[in-house]
Design a protein around this nucleic acid. Structure first.
Lengths: 256, 256
DNA sequence: CGCAGTTTTGATAGCCCTCAAGGGACGTGG
DNA sequence: CCACGTCCCTTGAGGGCTATCAAAACTGCG
């Protein structure tokens, strides 16, 4: 099962570096550290658990290639995907002091993962960090700032997810989710002309958006019939972003 | 309009201190700072916006008394409450570097709020923090550790909310939510014999749990009829916590 | 060429929403 | 003391969105 032929063609595999330097400018030695960490990514099969539920000390990792997710299972087998993780995303970088029932982290596709312990240590030791109170104007620079930003982005994705699941219809949910994916993937150069790799099954999509597989399928069909999206192989194209934005009431995570 | 007669009888107003020292042991001077900050709380009317949506630099505040929420409004008026904030909870303590579309923070009841700028500064300056890599065993102490823990707890509440909204029925959602409230309120000594103040309307509850007011009402009735909860005035009693836990598939945020 | 996983389709049912209206609690004012 | 408004809770009826069950078409693959 090839990981993501399209993704590879759409961008080189330095997703983590792209992601973090989009969040905050990095010092040369920090970039070097990142390159070193991601030099030899470990291939991981689909449906592999990267972090077990309740794990006391999840190892810091970075997702270099492929998609994954944080998910939680209910006792009767129902699954809720809490957040989808994309190339360049971080896993377990927050130092936790207690084993928290966060759910597990699992790959959705074939993926490539790197250990990121040194990244956390480097950030903890501090650097160009702008820790000053700064009243909010300062952005902060350096690895620590980038990691903070990464954490805040993840919180935004969670809030988005709550709004989708709580107050939007299936149609709106899918539109909103696709727009979020587009925005996130574009920061790692995986989007061209509103087209990007889309390597997950409708079952996964359903578990992410709180729907049944059958209804997920019908909703996708509706979006296609309405000319809003187009799927070929494992890639998807958003054919009318403004319309999608309007439907989903989408307000991105822009900085202004 | 009296804020919360029951709450007052169930616990003294030093909710913030209780909350934070439950997260991590504080140094004497940190406790003193907390007492100083919360010495003169400002009364706030219900439905008051404490943080506006997209606010670049939300002022750090602590909720000393009353309930509030983070919420997001859709263009057509639909409202989703992202997370409910209880006495002792923190608001805007994370230093943000960009204006993020987080939604607004609004009081749900009459409340008492304190500015907490000094708290953030004190934590940033560092203290007894256990920043060592520690492999996960160390808990960390001091204000900074407590604030980190507070942030992680909020993330757990978000994940809980996602699971509720995505994969649970109305009945399960309410059970799950009530158990979470019980657990959170108990850390600030606002729970006695599974009974606690419950000062929000069913409309608020509906917006928190992604339901209509009518269905919210019917679900509460069902829970009462099943002998699981009991409401009198503005207080609620969980009459069968094990049953509720089973129904909701509730796994608290315990440390083991 | 059959197998397993995925997508698709049809039919039926159910959870939950919307609309509408009545009742209760509380405070205000006459 | 009672009329009256407001807010909240409650109830009824009808319908729509979405789930479930079942099975067929499709795809990639060994």
């Amino acid at each position: 099962m090839p990981a993501e032929p399209l993704a590879r063609s759409l961008g080189p595999p330095d997703a983590v570096l792209r992601r973090l330097s989009a969040y905050a400018p990095l010092a040369p030695d920090e970039e070097a550290l990142l390159r070193q960490i991601t030099a030899r990514p470990a291939p991981v099969a689909p449906r592999t658990e990267l972090v077990r539920d309740g794990d006391a000390a999840p190892r810091p990792q970075v997702l270099v290639e492929g998609w994954a997710c944080r998910q939680r299972l209910l006792a009767d087998g129902r699954r809720q995907i809490v957040v989808v993780l994309l190339p360049g995303d971080l896993i377990g970088l927050d130092r936790r002091r207690r084993p928290l029932p966060f759910g597990s982290v699992t790959t959705l596709t074939a993926a490539q993962v790197c250990e990121a312990g040194p990244l956390r240590e480097r950030a903890a030791r501090g650097g160009a960090a702008g820790d000053g109170t700064g009243a909010g104007t300062g952005e902060g620079t350096g690895l620590a700032a980038a990691l903070r930003q990464a954490r805040e982005m993840e919180e935004i994705w969670l809030v988005n997810q709550v709004v989708r699941l709580g107050r939007q219809t299936a149609y709106e949910r899918v539109a909103h989710f696709l727009l979020e994916l587009r925005e996130r993937l574009s920061t790692v150069d995986r989007v061209q002309d509103d087209r990007f790799s889309f390597p997950i099954t409708q079952e996964v999509l359903a578990d992410a958006l709180g729907l049944s597989v059958v209804h997920m399928n019908r909703t996708m069909q509706q979006l296609r019939r309405d000319g809003l999206i187009e799927q070929r192989a494992t890639a998807i194209t958003l054919r009318d972003v403004p319309a999608l934005v309007s439907i989903a009431d989408y307000a991105g995570a822009h900085g202004a």
